[in-house]
């Protein structure tokens, strides 16, 4: 094994980690906000429910790569888009990738949050209403904590998937970890070694992420902790 090459590759790949993390954080932040909005809309009146259903159906039924391509290459076909104030953003691969990743995770997230909301026992909400809570207070104190606790394991999986999905941004020329890997592979044709380095970077990120999610789960479920005497 050529350790000098491995170390050199590792250094080059680590330079892409900030972009990988940035893509993940920004699109998860936007996507999560959008997911809550979609979940609430879906639970509201009928036309909204059907719109959200259609949105989720389309975004979950097609490959993310195609969604990125539609946004990056597709919508520039229209002169209206090219002349609009959005064009300075939509012509950049970075914002296209962020937009596609956010819209995609919002669709999966909306379903996860919906599942969490459905799992809140009726009795808990009723008890809160009886004791005089309503509206925002009810959501903040009772419904959301219970729903988040229920949805967190599934949402954790979605976060891991998002870290992996950012690799597709490399296909629209972004040089995050996968993009740099591709460049090194096509330069040196040493796929195995590069794969080893890039793979371990993603594994470490995802390992730390799953640890953090497990911590958050333990914190949100105080009633499941073992009794301390």
């Amino acid at each position: 094994m050529d350790f000098a090459f491995l170390i050199d590759t590792m250094q080059k790949l680590l330079a892409g980690v900030p972009l990988t993390l940035e893509l993940t954080f920004v699109s998860v932040a936007i996507g999560a906000a959008l997911a809550v909005l979609l979940a609430v809309l879906r639970a509201s009146f009928l036309p909204c429910e059907w719109l959200v259903r259609a949105y989720v159906f389309v975004l979950r039924g097609t490959p993310l790569l195609l969604q990125i391509f539609l946004i990056y290459y597709g919508i520039g076909q229209f002169a209206e888009v090219r002349n609009s104030f959005l064009w300075p953003f939509l012509r950049q691969p970075y914002w296209c990738a962020i937009l596609a990743l956010s819209l995609n995770t919002a669709a999966y997230g909306a379903e996860i949050i919906r599942g969490g909301l459905l799992a809140v026992p009726q009795g808990a909400a009723e008890a809160a209403r009886v004791s005089g809570m309503s509206g925002f207070l009810l959501y903040r104190r009772i419904i959301l904590p219970l729903a988040i606790r229920q949805a967190l394991p599934a949402y954790g999986n979605e976060l891991v998937i998002m870290v992996k999905s950012t690799s597709l941004a490399s296909i629209v020329t972004l040089m995050e970890v996968s993009g740099i890997s591709y460049a090194i592979i096509s330069e040196t044709y040493r796929a195995l070694e590069v794969f080893l380095c890039a793979g371990s970077i993603y594994l470490v990120i995802n390992f730390l992420l799953t640890r953090a999610i497990a911590q958050a789960e333990a914190w949100l479920n105080p009633h499941l902790r073992p009794a301390t005497s």
Partner: peptide, 22 residues
Amino acid sequence: TTVVRGIPDLLVVYLFYFGGSQ
């Protein structure tokens, strides 16, 4: 299961595409 589920599928495709010819 841990390794394969922890790394992007695109990298696995690259591994087989370029590594396969290697």
